[in-house]
Amino acid sequence: MPSPPIQGPRASGGASATAPILETRGLSKDFRGFTAVDDVNLQVQEGHIHALIGPNGAGKTTVFNLLTRFLPATRGEILYRGKSITRMKSHEIARLGLVRSFQISAVFSQMTVLENVRVALQRPQGTSFHFWKPERSLDSLNEQALHLLEQVGLRDDAHRVTASLPYGRKRALELATTLALEPTVMLLDEPTQGMGAEDVDRVVELIRVAARGRTVLMVEHNLSVVSRLCDRISVLARGRVLAEGDYASVSANPEVREAYLGSEAPESTADEHKEVS
């Protein structure tokens, strides 16, 4: 059984001249008169790690929910490889290869670590509706699942119940589960949220490895993570794109600094605060 390569073919050069893999045009979302996302035009280039940052309530998670159709957009278009996915269903978007994670770690806590990954692997087998087949029929996927777990350092925990894992490891498991789908675009919603410094470094490394040959769009509060990982940054404030560019240009932008300082200071620690200012 061949294991899925965690590191796919390198995206061709990452040249920005090519058409974006994921694009939004005039994307907007109204909640009863309140516009949470307002005319957002995003272009995510293939092979990039693209960050979406901004103060609390800027609409970052709403954009994620719109992109994966967990919420329907009020106006605007979402294009994946040039084709509109605006009206597709959530699970269909996932099958296209756009796989999202969630702000709060999304694992299946009463299942074992191995089962978590296996449930992501089993769908392509086409037996997921087969209620008359024994669970043993899934054992052929175990090797592949263990291989994925090894890559995030969880192989030894494979038979533990997920609920018993510490928080940082749950996030690593979530990443392994996402990778099991061999996504082309990973949408990570605050992958380092609520983590201690050590775990943050681990996850940054995991994302860096996992992102090879893939495109990543991530919401992140921790600016040191953003500066270490991301090729391109879009700053969202009050539902609009305030600035876009690489870390140096964005952090030098006076409007961005005002948006951050004008509201709450960046949610992370004091020294990350220094990095922006």
Partner: peptide, 23 residues
């Protein structure tokens, strides 16, 4: 204890995540 049952458990534990896995 079937492939179907595994998906059911996943839905019980975290339905949005199961959707995001393509189910």
């Amino acid at each position: 204890h079937s492939p179907f049952g595994q998906v059911l458990k996943a839905i019980r534990e975290n339905e949005p995540r199961a959707i995001s896995l393509g189910y």
